[in-house]
Design a binder for these strands. Structure first.
Lengths: 313, 313
DNA sequence: ATGACCGTGTGAGGAAATCGCATGATCGAG
DNA sequence: CTCGATCATGCGATTTCCTCACACGGTCAT
């Protein structure tokens, strides 16, 4: 206890626990693996307990290490609460808010929310950044952003992950898009199973949540989609569909360029993706962050009420 | 949030709040005022809020500073809990326990407790230190001791001070001692007011809790003691009384050398001093500290049951 | 089985933060 | 008004921290 501990040292352990490897944690912290190793060694010396043990060529946290991680989570949340209360005392001139999210969230949610925030308070410095879904939450933990917009489920954000403050922003269904003139386009009501025999356009496995969402939904509908083409960007997906190469799922709020000749079909058993705004635990008490979350929720409400119909492009 | 904060920096603010001056806080931390000033400045820069403002030639915490102190208390308690849980994982060989207390507590409580702990577990390194009552709690905060034995009340430990974990160890009444052969010595029952006209032997004002205890008790009994001589050490007090220079109050458990010709009289309206064992909040979950507290409580129970009678010397 | 790749841990060197001493400024007490 | 006390600030010295380079051990593929 003679030497008190920097929260950064605990953050290192937290990230090693989160990523399972020293190198990945170092990557997130913009450090070399050597520095992380030193910090962990120092932390173990201070606590007098072995925090991690070799596991193959990687490392694994000991029970003591996992216990310390739990306390570290609580400590960081407490520090965030302190920061939040202090931010209320600070003069608003220095207030800033950094948000990030996956590409389509930037277009549909972050940009409108940022515009709204700017209009409401020109003194608030709003910064928006596009991040890959897998990186957004790490940026949050590293303190490089204040709000991360992510999609619930999948590997990036497990449903039971209690490490973040989470706020639902949007629950949007996926529509099926088919080439214009496709037999399915004439139906009054469509179900996912109707497209069981069609060739599909999906993202590559693991690259994006779209893949998992589609595969799980199709398996729930009783078939396995035959993947004919791979694309991640929704504009690219709709282009492939417009050219008659297959069918695909796209979120209700994703826009399709008007020159793409596709038909958008609402599904009776449409899968939905739940978009969440995530913050570091405790930081949502900060006025700027609270306003950012409110603006995102508002943008989400606008998004679901704005579409004039399911067949819009 | 790019730079996370060392708990030491918060500790500096905590101590400045506790002592009201930078110099005193530096003294407790074994640092120069310069270092403390730098730390505070750095902390204010990191948080973006003015933490303290000049108040005469001293400094005063701003509302933001006081708010941060409250959070700092919670964070340190959380860290202590973490240390406590980790200590349970550590091998017992490195376990150590440091206790301190005021002089008579060392004799009556700490020494027996330490002996008991040593006997129960020779692997536990027990260290006892005698401290002035005013310093003991600072040593606790500075992490230089694990358990501080103090007396409730007075300036050193306000009754409502929630910054420490506290455990009652002993509530011992004060006895009146008078010179042997004094008229009061013949009575079957004595009250404080009976000694209203006697010359008193007390500690100098402010130097020790004894002064405050005696003065408040006497004023409750309806008189103001006439202080004839000053002494702090109970052996010195009893020597003065034995020489017929006055009467005094001494704790029930304080021993009087047999060569001192004094009579010890129990009082009907005896003031009591409540001896507490204090720990840093959260640290009482540490096995070694929990055992130390248990040993102190046991020593306290022994102390009240052991005396053969109030007239023992 | 062997070699290449990947990940961790260690020591040395340099950069950055921190501490202590000396100085100046400001306020309160006598 | 003078003096003592307290807090802030520059500069040199020390400690701490990060990076680089390299060794060690484990995994995978040919």
């Amino acid at each position: 206890m003679i030497e008190s501990v920097d929260l950064r040292r605990l953050q290192v352990l937290r990230l090693v626990h989160r990523h399972g490897t020293v190198t990945a944690a170092a990557d997130v912290l913009h450090l070399t693996p050597s520095a992380v190793s030193h910090q962990l060694r120092q932390l173990a010396r201070e606590t007098g307990v072995a925090l991690l043990e070799p596991d193959g060529r990687r490392v694994r946290l000991t029970p003591a290490g996992r216990a310390l991680v739990a306390h570290a989570d609580a400590l960081h949340a407490g520090w965030e609460r302190a920061r939040a209360e202090l931010a209320a005392y600070a003069d608003g001139s220095s207030a800033s808010l950094r948000m990030c999210g996956f590409p389509s969230a930037v277009a549909g949610l972050l940009a409108p929310a940022a515009a709204r925030l700017r209009a409401a308070d020109p003194g608030l410095a709003v910064h928006v950044a596009e991040e890959e879904p897998a990186d957004a939450l790490d940026r949050l933990l590293a303190g490089e952003t204040d709000i991360a917009v992510a999609v619930l489920g999948g590997a990036t954000l497990p449903l039971d992950d209690a490490k973040f403050g989470r706020r639902p922003v949007l629950a949007e269904p996926f529509d099926l898009i088919v080439p214009a003139g496709h037999p399915l386009a004439g139906r009054v009501e469509t179900a996912l199973a109707d497209a069981a025999d069609e060739p599909w356009v999906l993202a590559a496995a693991g690259s994006c949540d779209l893949y998992e969402v589609a595969v799980t939904a199709c398996s729930a509908a009783g078939f396995t989609p035959r993947v004919a083409h791979h694309a991640r960007d929704y504009t690219a997906v709709s282009a492939l569909v417009a050219c008659g190469l297959g069918v695909a799922l796209i979120p209700r709020t994703a826009t399709v360029p008007t020159r793409h000749a596709v038909a958008r079909l609402p599904l009776r058993d449409a899968p939905t993706r739940r978009v969440l705004a995530c913050v570091r635990l405790g930081s949502d008490r900060r006025p700027a962050i609270a306003r950012g979350l409110a603006a995102l929720e508002e943008a989400g409400r606008d998004l679901v009420s704005l579409p004039e119909g399911p067949d819009r492009r």
